[in-house]
Nucleic acid binder design. Structure first.
Lengths: 359, 359
DNA sequence: GCCATCGATGTAAGCGCTTACATAGATCGC
DNA sequence: GCGATCTATGTAAGCGCTTACATCGATGGC
């Protein structure tokens, strides 16, 4: 302690300019302030309220900061400012193009405003989702976008306890207690089923993702059942396959279904991946689509329009969902309480995989 | 100020238990400490070094915290601990299944260790990438994974200045100055080209993503050229189409190429999306693949094996790249300086789109 | 029975930043 | 020419947390 160090501070600091010892610490605001011969407050102002500091000084500070490679450290400023500028996105998985698109769009929209996106994938596991949300809250996210509303009640409770804005995506029940950006899954599948019914189909199969703990999927199935019921029809048990959304599951399901008697003349699939599988397998089995079998998908992923025949499906603008979710949350953060957004309306794209039944 | 408040603190606090005024503030460690009748240090220990506090007290604190809905606030602890437990992933876009898979795998691997993933998509724009990295550094990321090494030099310089571990993915030049997790793009495309040459093709077209500012793509093109050169062949200018990786670009490129004289007997595509387009368009034009035209892809995305005929391509395990990148960074963070990882080796999957040339 | 030892808990000093408030020149009206 | 006013800058008090160090009983050896 023979140095001319006034304070007995225990930790050696970079600002001590001691050539000894290990890794150089990152420069701090006070280092920049010292180098630019201003106070630390001025440094801070240069970065947060530049108009409040004289141009000459401003330039000097900026130059010094740049030279030293300094920029405000987010943790410190988050603490002082009580704003983290972080928002979280909670989705099932990035392996589905649909959610990847939503996240991509949100990320872009937030980046414009200097907000960083924290991502979590819960893999269709409600406990995981609840846990991830906790972790995000601990990180101080200022807003949250969550796919679906079939989550543990404590998930929403803990968000609400923090009084931060949030939005549920991909769902849009008219009477949902949550702010939603999405579409009415039930209605959408009602529309698809009607399309098939109107073509004259009466024996309709369904290949769909697991409904357990997934409000969107349950709603889709409900929509189909409702449309059929209106015509006095139903789904035969052997014509309902529920399982992971994968091309392979679509394939094996359609194969199983076509082995029943009578086989369905049309198959409604819970998403395009399943429909792809159904289409490919039907063709592999020597069937002509749509002549022998009509097939519908949902989502309109990139590949769907490219197939031969191109897939009849419903188009959902996933980037738009991401953009709207971001816009909504941004508006909340800026203090306005935006009006409840209208639902998106997926549009039926009649392409080549549906036709009047042959039999 | 007639209250029995000892300090003249200006900001009203939740701990003042004043029923008046607006939003309730989130509880802090000191509130929990007070409620559990321990010191704030004990609260902190319960959450960070639980073995250091007596079981009875530990339970009491835990219960109190839970009741109050408290958990350590990340910004505060990041500051005190000088660890943010955040790592960043910098990728071109989530719209490509390949990068989405990598990010998904990294996210899962990090989540296990309590580390949060910050995501940024630079859309193949080097300036954007450099900017994003800056922002991440300001956020205090402790490590960084970046797709590709064709970035502005200051991007790497600023990472290195911070002395944080980083890794470049999807590249693996033997003499790269960066730690890489990926494969040798040049070698991989050399292999593909050889496959076609060995089948007897001599007029080979290439449909590829933009090479500018993309080291991976440039390497791929180099690999093809090298393999052709070994047989005294080259790529004719009219047989080289460079553009955005999209199914549509694949389609229009193959159409253009087949209009040349002589047309290529085989087309090497820079990725599976392009190959998909090429395949679909060739078929739409009435060609038989692979009889009239051989086509190769790269990446082996989910749909590729499902097509009819299934696509000959090279399989890359993108989840594995994510896992390895995460493992490498994790190891660095734990202090070990792991040995340079060996490259992944993409494997050629000969499926149905390549055969001996017909002509 | 007394002192050294040890384990559990508390005290307080920051972590790097923002910002309300204080201060000190400069400007201006009369 | 002097006080009022204003503007540019500085001072210092936190933001919520962790942790080195201090403290204080309890334990145990002799």
């Amino acid at each position: 302690m023979s140095e001319r160090d006034p304070k007995p501070g225990p930790a050696p600091r970079a600002s001590d300019a001691r050539p000894v010892s290990g890794k150089p610490r990152a420069p701090r605001a006070v280092d920049v302030a010292a180098a630019a011969e201003v106070s630390i407050a001025t440094v801070s102002r240069v970065f947060n309220n530049p108009e409040k500091v004289a141009p000459a000084i401003r330039e000097r500070v900026l130059a010094t900061a740049k030279a030293m490679g300094w920029m405000p450290h987010a943790a410190g400023s988050a603490l002082a400012r009580r704003r983290t500028s972080i928002v979280g996105a909670v989705i099932p998985t990035l392996d589905n193009e649909v959610f990847a698109a939503q996240v991509g769009a949100m990320q872009a929209a937030f980046a414009d405003r200097g907000i960083t996106l924290l991502l979590s994938c819960f893999n269709y596991d409600q406990d995981q989702a609840a846990h991830d949300v906790q972790a995000m809250l601990a990180r101080g996210v200022e807003a949250l976008a969550i796919v679906g509303e079939a989550h543990r009640p404590d998930l929403f409770a803990s968000i609400q306890a923090r009084h931060i804005p949030y939005v549920v995506t991909y769902s849009h029940r008219p009477d949902s207690p949550h702010p939603c950006i999405g579409f009415d899954n039930r209605q959408a599948f009602h529309t698809i089923a009607r399309h098939l019914l109107d073509l004259g189909h009466e024996t309709i199969g369904v290949i769909i993702q697991p409904t357990a703990g997934n409000d969107r999927v349950s709603a889709r199935l409900d929509g189909v059942r409702a449309a059929l019921a209106e015509r006095g029809l139903g789904i035969r048990p052997q014509h309902l396959c529920e399982g992971e959304w994968s091309i392979d599951f679509g394939r094996q399901s359609v194969r199983a279904m076509l082995a029943t008697d009578p086989p369905p003349t049309a198959v409604i699939c819970g998403n395009d991946y399943l429909a792809l599988g159904a289409l490919l397998e039907a063709r592999a089995m020597g069937l002509s689509v749509p002549h022998d079998l009509s097939i519908t998908g949902f989502d309109d992923i990139a590949i769907s329009r490219q197939l031969d025949p191109p897939l009849t499906t419903m188009h959902v603008d996933n980037h738009e969902i991401g953009r709207r979710a971001a816009a909504y949350l941004l508006a909340c953060l800026e203090g306005s309480r935006p009006a409840k957004l209208p639902p998106l309306v997926p549009t039926l794209i009649r392409r080549g995989t549906t036709a009047v039944p042959h039999t």
